[in-house]
Nucleic acid binder design. Structure first.
Lengths: 146, 146
DNA sequence: TGATAATATTTCGAATTCGAAATATAATAT
DNA sequence: ATATTATATTTCGAATTCGAAATATTATCA
């Protein structure tokens, strides 16, 4: 392959999805990063700040701000680790869980509706390809190569 | 399919690519939107503001700001249409062309290096799938359905 | 032990990006 | 021809996001 069409369509797909999500969740007073953090905690229960940062892939300063904001809104709880006091554990509060139990199914429905233009097999290949790209570029970032 | 894994990996892939691009082009004093606009004009010669907005998929206010900034940097030229004076045409200046002729091949190389983890066939399927997703979600945005 | 390096997280000011409303112009309908 | 609607673009203030440096704590090593 020669062109960057893949990058172009990836960016376009991302941007339109993001636009939908942004609009969808703004009615609950959430922005995209906030929703991302909530979603990660919704599925994984307790995580450290670092783990959340690694999953969401946004800069640590942004996530730090986001977490602050979610704590202020009482949607998550933040507890300092006793063994290693650099570390803070995060988890959804009752309020946060309730919100996500309400929002997430709707969100999931919206997203699945879009994804269902793909055949099951197609979606699987898409997933695998995206994972590969994600991994490869992450390596580039870490090794500072690119 | 049931889960939203596809969305997750799409967002991760996007975020790591964006991080690389951001870093890559910041050495030329450009941000991602600026580069996006330059890239579009690099390939299409003359476009209106609206056409650029539709291609980049960022909010018109953001692109307006970006265009302003590129004009200030003398990287693009902006000319009002005579037939329809609501419309402004955009194109790269000499300086902008020179910059892109220098930057783009490097950028392309970096991106292709990442994409080349995929087999040709895999990349083609990825492209098609992403186009479908992009289109479907765009329809959702326009019809205000989701 | 004390110094140095590594890791986790936050702070800070600047830059970017956003959505909504405003402006400018053109197209359509009455 | 005038009013209304539609389209293209910008303005504006607020919110978000960024990168770099700072802080806090732990691990390593001389």
């Amino acid at each position: 392959m020669e062109s960057l069409k893949t990058i172009t369509v990836l960016f376009r797909a991302y941007n339109s999805l993001e636009k939908i999500i942004r609009k969808d969740i703004s009615q609950y007073g959430l922005n995209v990063n906030e929703f991302g953090v909530l979603e990660v905690l919704f599925h994984r229960d307790t995580l450290t700040v670092k783990e959340v940062i690694d999953k969401v892939l946004a800069p640590n300063s942004s996530i730090s701000y986001t977490i602050e904001s979610l704590v202020r809104k009482s949607l998550i709880e933040k507890v300092q680790s006793i063994e290693d006091r650099r570390v803070f554990y995060l988890r959804l509060s009752k309020k946060g869980k309730d919100l996500m139990n309400k929002i997430f199914p709707i969100h999931k429905n919206n997203m699945r509706q879009i994804l269902d233009v793909l055949a099951e097999n197609e979606e699987l290949i898409l997933q695998r390809a995206l994972v590969k790209i994600g991994k490869t570029s992450l390596e580039g970032i870490e090794k500072n190569e690119i």
